[in-house]
Each structure stands twice: as structure tokens, then as C-alpha cells.
Design a protein around this nucleic acid. Structure first.
Lengths: 227, 227
DNA sequence: GCCGGACCTCAACCGCTGGTAGAGGGTTGA
DNA sequence: TCAACCCTCTACCAGCGGTTGAGGTCCGGC
């Protein structure tokens, strides 16, 4: 027999940590356990009690961390959103299912929702993208001209939204899309390197290497900053 | 004359309370004073020290309370929004001017073995570095030859350790230090860009931009991976 | 069969946020 | 002159979002 006990599949908590640390520098093992204790994820367990995180569990954690970091939502609220999504209320195009207490007053909240919401499953038109990223059309033009985002078909996904938003942030520091070209070049090269190793299909290995790449990049940038 | 002493116009704090309590049941006098202490409003004062709130002040309070209630934003962020609006960045249709989503600094610093969250306070000898990263001497040589880590004085810091470890991970996929050179180049360029904007001293801004850079990089790499 | 590293639980502790409470005292206007 | 209103300041507090550490188990490799 190949696998005598396939029993519980998934990643261990340490692996999950590696994966997430690429994007969220302040995640720790204890934080992940804490989030479970608070009922935000519910990984499976092996017979001996080890946590086993499925890809969906990891996605869920990513969602939580994104909502915390980019929308400052308290865990209680994030939990409600997740619960709503579990009940089938997938966010069509509008972020988590609308704050329950939405009164007429709130000074229009941007669609916000970083790329978290269940992966890259977003499909935005160009206009929606611009509105959601909350950047001027001109900036989006430049972003696109420099190849920082690309449409697939004629839709844009969550990564595109995130990139657009970040470009907006950079712009506030006077850094324009053209200054960001090197980022694109580097990303292309790295993606190429990864693909060369793991082949043209996106597997777990792909994700793992991507996480490593992002972490390496982060460490290098930090080490080169002024002291 | 109509008004002999217009001096300081506006409502007293009690009046303001009445006004706001209609909409926000949990506002109190002490909360309003607290918000002033935190720098979110700055009502005028009479000669004897009484607060006098203009209509604009009340509007401002209303904004604060709304953002708190409907978007769960922390005061620090609301304050930033207000400051941005004061500087004229009135976001035409977009609510608060783009959540800056700056990375919240970890308050205390657990030198978490991995990633010394700029607990760069480590000082390792070359040998300690090799041992801690758990990589063969040969690999460390290559890592160093390709400029991925550099000693300061004759010590290595936490970033160096992390880089060394990651190089070890990559090696397990058959990716050698020389393949990682582009990472170094990219990091150099980005650090340069950042330094150009924020100057040669490491400030909050430096950290913020670095965080943005890392996030942008992560998003771009992801977006370029096979689907 | 034993060692080190990864993982487990549970309880205690912690820093920060967003206030509240109250003592002690001045101001205003009828 | 008195009540209602307002002031400052210090002390305290609860809840949130974790961290730390003690004490123990699990698992792969030699």
C-alpha cells in the first residue's frame, strides 16, 4: 500500500507560519494558536493532537490577518464576517458582507478589502479596480503602462487590486509607477526562477518557494536600510 | 451695537453633548474631553478656559464617532485621516483618504529566533552564524561571495542570520546562492530608492516605505506565478 | 532506545487603547 | 450667594490581543 494512514492531511503549524510570515511579518505560532482559541480557524487534528491546516485554513488565516492589518477590524467583527461567508454570503464585489451597523452617515467606505477575501477570486472591471484602489485614473494608467498590473481577460484580480493600492501609497511619498519598474523586473525574474524549479503548474511547492522568495527579499531590503 | 463681546463664539461642552447624544448614545462629556486630549478636536477657549465648539468642531466629532462606530477604526488612524483632510486631501468620493495601512510596529521585541523583527541587535561571529543558520560552510562562503550577507565589523546581525537560513532552504530546492543574486540587486535598488526619499537616517518613514516595498514585491510575485 | 526538535495545553502575565471616576476648585448668571 | 456648569489632574479600570513559560507528548533519525 502506498499510504497506510492518510488520515489527516495538511500542513503543520510551523509550515503555516513560514507561509504567512512572508506577507505578515508579525505573525507567530502563538498568534495562530490564539486565533484558533478565539474561533477564527478550526484546523483538523491528528490522532495525537497536532494541528493540520488545509489550504482553506491558511486562506482563512490570510483573510484574518489582512483584515486586521488593512482595515483595522477587531477580531470579533472579522469572526462575524467569516461566519457570514461560511453561511454562503460570499462577498460578490464588496468586501466583507457590509458592516451590520451601516448607517446612512458613514463617509463612504472604500471597498477596501485587500486581496484577502478568499484568495484571488476577485474579478473587477477596470473601473471597479480604480474605485476600489481609490487612485486617480491617471495613476492607474501609469501603473498599467509599466506593467505593474495586467488584466486577465478583461478583468483584474485581487493581486491587481493590492498592487494598485500600494502604488497609491507610494504615490503619496512622491514615488511614481515608473520608479516601481524594478519591482516588476525583480518579480518577473523570481517568478521565472520558481517556475523553473517547480514546473508550470501551481503546486504547494510553488507557494512555498514564493514564500521563501518574499522572505528573502524582505530580509535583504531590511539589511540594506540605514541603521 | 448688536454684540458687545463676540469674543469666542460657539457651543459649550454640555450643549455639544446634547447634540451628539441624539446620534451616539454612548458619548459623554468625559469622552469629548478625552478626544480633545488625544488631539482629535481642538475647540476654542474662552478667557476663563471654557471650551467653545464651533459647528466645524462638532462636525469633526461626529466624524470621529461615526468612524469608530461604523468602521471600527482606532483613534490613531482616525486622527491621521483628519490630519490628511486638514492638509486638503479631501477625498472626493472615497471616504477617508485611503487607509494608510502602515505596519503596526510590534511593541516589545521578542527576538524570535527567526527573523529578529529588527531585533537586529544580534551579534554573531561567522562561526556562530553558520551554526545558527545550520548550513554547510561552503554554502555560507557562496552566500557571502555573492554579497547576500555582509559582516559589520566582524559580526553578523539578525538579518544576516535570516538570509543565511533562507539560503539554506533554497539550497534544498537546488537553488544556489548565485541564483539569488538578482534578489540582492533588487534589494539594493529598493533600499536606494527608499533612502532617496526618506534621507539617510532610519525613521518611521523608512520603515513604512520598506513595509510597502515588501508588500508590493509579494503581490507582484504572486501575481506572476502560474495560476 | 534515545535524542532533539516540533508540537501540545494551560495558566499567568503584559502593554496598549479607550476611556471613567472623583477630588478639588474656578466661572457664570439669576 | 447659590446652583449649575465647567475646569484640570491623577488614579484607576476593563477588554483586547496577544506572549511567556512550565511541564509534557510526539516523531523521525541515528
Amino acid at each position: 500500500m502506498a499510504k497506510p494512514e492518510p488520515s489527516v492531511e495538511g500542513r503543520g503549524i510551523g509550515e503555516v507560519l513560514q507561509l504567512l510570515q512572508a506577507e505578515f511579518t508579525d505573525v507567530t505560532i502563538s498568534k495562530i494558536r490564539f486565533l484558533e482559541a478565539e474561533g477564527l480557524v478550526a484546523p483538523a487534528r491528528t490522532a495525537s493532537g497536532y494541528r493540520k491546516f488545509s489550504a482553506a485554513d491558511v486562506e482563512r488565516l490570510r483573510y484574518v490577518l489582512t483584515a486586521q492589518r488593512d482595515q483595522y477590524l477587531p477580531l470579533k467583527i472579522i469572526k462575524e464576517h467569516l461566519a457570514a461567508m461560511d453561511r454562503g454570503l460570499r462577498p460578490s464585489a464588496g468586501g466583507p458582507p457590509v458592516a451590520p451597523s451601516s448607517l446612512p452617515e458613514p463617509p463612504g467606505l472604500p471597498v477596501a478589502e485587500d486581496f484577502g477575501a478568499y484568495g484571488t477570486r476577485l474579478e473587477l472591471t477596470r473601473d471597479e479596480l480604480r474605485a476600489a484602489a481609490d487612485i486617480p485614473a491617471e495613476l492607474l494608467d501609469q501603473v498599467e503602462n509599466h506593467g505593474l498590473v495586467v488584466a486577465r481577460g478583461n478583468h483584474y484580480d485581487g493581486d491587481a487590486l493590492l498592487v494598485a493600492k500600494l502604488a497609491g501609497e507610494f504615490a503619496r511619498y512622491g514615488i511614481e509607477p515608473r520608479h516601481l519598474r524594478p519591482f516588476r523586473t525583480a518579480a518577473d525574474r523570481e517568478a521565472g526562477l520558481i517556475e523553473q524549479v517547480t514546473g508550470p503548474r501551481r503546486t504547494e511547492q510553488t507557494e512555498e518557494l514564493a514564500a521563501l522568495a518574499v522572505r528573502l527579499h524582505a530580509a535583504l531590503v531590511r539589511s540594506r536600510l540605514p541603521r
